[in-house]
Amino acid sequence: MAQALGWWGVPLGIIAGTFRGSVPFLFVSLGECLTEKSGKINLGLEGTLLTGAMSSYAISYLTGSPWLGVIGAGLAGMALGAIHGWLSQQPRVNDVAVGIAMIIFGSGVAFFLGKPFIKPSAPQLPTIDLGNWSNLTQVQAALKISPLFILGMAIAFLMQWFFKSTRWGLYVRAVGDNPDAARAMGISVFKVRMVSIIVGSFLAGIGGAALSLYYPGVWTERISSGQGLIAVALVIFARWNPIQCLYASLLFGGARSLGPALQSVGIDWGYYLFNAVPYVLTLAIMIITCSPKRRLTGAPGALGTDK
């Protein structure tokens, strides 16, 4: 690729990587955003992502229908979400600890059930080819957009509207900001959080399907490489705003492709350091915007408390 295009391969590689790499980030971060808006944190989405990737790949292989796989991934995510939602709301149970136990449990289930599916190749999701105007195969390959990306974008705008303009969105925000007040309004904090966490995990499961059925399009045990945990940072980066989750996903996806894109033109130095760019950026933004005197704008009031 790089030989034919020379230095143009770098921006093209980044664009291609941004579209491909941002899809799982988009779904997981939207799921985490919904979860955190209700006042609970779900670190276990890493396990959900792996379970989603495994189940979609297995279902796609067994039934021959990748879309069935996507739905299966969402349902598998919901099952894990139900465990997390119920457990993390028991008295004296810390949601961070449950999340880490769920990473271990979720990845255990995914690796256990997914072992027979590492070798066979499953039918992949179709792509929307936006690059057909170009004669260059590299450009065509870079602009193969997944329909999941379009879907994720739609969900981001939908979620924004949901939080802002619907009664149910208000319930979620109320429960996340001030559970006591929400209770006084007659809202069931338990139910709202349960639903938010389960729907969030459904989205994270679909993010897993994007990994195994779109890009990189295989099922291995190292497929998620921490993307589920990164989503937690991404949501903070996006200030708990679904539209900004979309932008942040593009940025994080792009940053991940920086190293490989430079490598393709022979620059090896700093390959791994470029991988760390999103985390350094998130940390820097937190340091700049946090202050002992007030909370982060957009941060749900009950997040990280026992309420």
């Binding site: 449950v98 449990f105 979720g106």
Partner: peptide
């Protein structure tokens, strides 16, 4: 070998639940 992960996850989920 992921069986151990499943077991480990189950033990920890149950012990964390038992706190309540």
């Amino acid at each position: 070998d992921a069986t151990v992960l499943v077991f480990q996850g189950l033990v920890f989920l149950m012990v964390l639940y038992s706190d309540s």
